[in-house]
Every structure is written in structure tokens, then in C-alpha cells.
């Protein structure tokens, strides 16, 4: 399997998709640099820039960068090989089809995970620059936790959208509607419907700052959102990931792909 993973990692690194992913990853870093430049203005209003890290990681990473990268790359895992008509080169190798699906998802996880983590690390570091190493270390637990949640989120979303991409041509649209429509709507409603979103479990794992009754963002809502226990949230996210892997591999194994322009 190493051979296939290395092949897909190399392909991803050389592809144009990586350029866009890096560009997207740099976007929050640029915003934090702007905030750093505006520090005197913010401090005049009693806002310390390092205190903006939770909001930035929550809105820009968990609710923007993570779903965007997962939707666009996940739906392309099988979809781009079909669209680019390169799938036959892979399927006539003495390797079971499920291994191609699993290898490509893993390759994407590794590369995109690195981009997300590096971007978050840079963002955190930039915001803590004025406070020296001790300031950086004081809040580093929050950094580690948000990194872990982002990786878990990527591990859940990516196979899920790979599955959609293996089934439908317009999987990107479906993915965007799911993440920016369904998830954003349902996750903040009372009742159990939120259990049908991925983001609910990510919220449950996010640093305590965001939890109810902790003075965090969710406290601003007029209703009380109950969270899932950490261990349950991790288990559900891993199950979603496993289901995504399994279903993508299954579709690739049983489905015939008629390539474009045939």
C-alpha cells in the first residue's frame, strides 16, 4: 500500500490542487498578520490580539478552511481520476480497487492535514508573537486541542466527501450544501437533529472556550446547546471516517465507470 500512497502523495504535491490548498491555508495567516499590524488600534479598545485565536480557529478553520478543503479535495478523490480519464491506468494493476480508494484518501489526509496544521500553527504563533515564548506556551494546550479537532474533522469529512464524489458528478455542490447549509443550520438547533451533523461532534471537542456556560460563543445563542461527551464524539467521528472509507472503496469496487468523451 506504501507504493500507492507515495504515488498519490507525489501526484497531489505536483498538482494544481495543492497550490489552491496552500493559498487557502495562507488566508487565515494573512488575516492574523493584518490583526498583528493593527495591534495598537485593538489594544486601544482593550483587545489583546492573542485572545482572538479561539475565534479565528473556530470561524476560519473549523467553519471555513476545514470544510472547504475537505469538500474540494474529498469529492475529487475518485472524481478527478474519472474526469481526467486516468482511472484505467490504476484499475488494470494487480491491486484490489479498495486499496486505491483507501490510499488516495490517506494521501490526501496526510498532505491536507499538514497544510491545515501548519497554517494553524503559524496563525497561533503570529498572534502570540508580542507575548514571547512564555505567552506562546501558556495557551499551547488550546493550540494542541484545536489541531487535534481539525485533524479528526478532516479524517471524518474527507472520506465522506470521497464517497459522494465516487457516486455523483456534482459532489462539490452537495458537499458545500451539506457543510455550509445543513450543518450550520442544524448544529445550532435544539433537539437531537444536530447529532446528524459532523460539526456537532467537532464543537463538542473544541476547547472549552466554546462550550455552553463557559463564556464562549455558544453562550451568545438564545438557546442552550447540549454537547456530546469527548469520548463519544471521538468515537462517532472515527466511525464516520471508517464508514466513508468503506463506502468509497465499495463503490469503486462494484461500480463501472464510463469515462467522459467516450
Amino acid at each position: 500500500m506504501n507504493q500507492e500512497i507515495r504515488f498519490f502523495i507525489r501526484n497531489l504535491i505536483k498538482s494544481r490542487r495543492l497550490f489552491w490548498a496552500v493559498l487557502l491555508g495562507l488566508f487565515p495567516v494573512v488575516i492574523t498578520l493584518v490583526l498583528l499590524a493593527a495591534r495598537p488600534l485593538l489594544e486601544d479598545r482593550d483587545i489583546e490580539v492573542f485572545r482572538l485565536y479561539p475565534q479565528i480557529s473556530f470561524f476560519l478553520y473549523l467553519h471555513f478552511l476545514l470544510p472547504m478543503t475537505a469538500v474540494f479535495t474529498g469529492s475529487a478523490v475518485i472524481g478527478e481520476e474519472v474526469e481526467d480519464q486516468t482511472l484505467p491506468y490504476l484499475l488494470i494493476r494487480p491491486i484490489p480497487k479498495w486499496r486505491f480508494a483507501a490510499s488516495k484518501i490517506l494521501a490526501n489526509l496526510v498532505v491536507l492535514g499538514c497544510i491545515l496544521i501548519l497554517s494553524l500553527f503559524l496563525c497561533y504563533t503570529v498572534l502570540h508573537l508580542p507575548y514571547g515564548l512564555s505567552g506562546w506556551l501558556d495557551e499551547s494546550g488550546q493550540l494542541a486541542r484545536s489541531m487535534g479537532v481539525l485533524l479528526l474533522g478532516l479524517a471524518a469529512y474527507l472520506p465522506l466527501f470521497s464517497f459522494l464524489g465516487s457516486l455523483f458528478k456534482k459532489a462539490v455542490l452537495g458537499g458545500l450544501l451539506f457543510t455550509f447549509g445543513w450543518e450550520n443550520l442544524i448544529a445550532y438547533l435544539p433537539g437531537n437533529a444536530k447529532l446528524l451533523t459532523v460539526v456537532h461532534y467537532l464543537h463538542s471537542l473544541y476547547p472549552t472556550f466554546f462550550r455552553s456556560n463557559s463564556g464562549g460563543i455558544l453562550d451568545m445563542l438564545p438557546i442552550k446547546i447540549t454537547m456530546t461527551k469527548d469520548i463519544v464524539a471521538i468515537f462517532v467521528l472515527l466511525m464516520i471516517s471508517a464508514a466513508g472509507f468503506f463506502l468509497t472503496a465499495l463503490v469503486l469496487t462494484v461500480r463501472e465507470y464510463r469515462l467522459e468523451r467516450e
Binding site: 501526484n11 505536483k14 481526467d84
Partner: peptide, 14 residues
């Protein structure tokens, strides 16, 4: 089995 497909498709960055 060896197969040379008809379509002019590649990973062009390789």
C-alpha cells in the same frame, strides 16, 4: 495484462 487506452489522458504534471 497490459493495456494501452485510447484516450489521451495522463497525469500531465508527471
Amino acid at each position: 495484462i497490459g493495456y494501452c487506452p485510447e484516450q489521451d489522458a495522463f497525469w500531465k504534471f508527471l
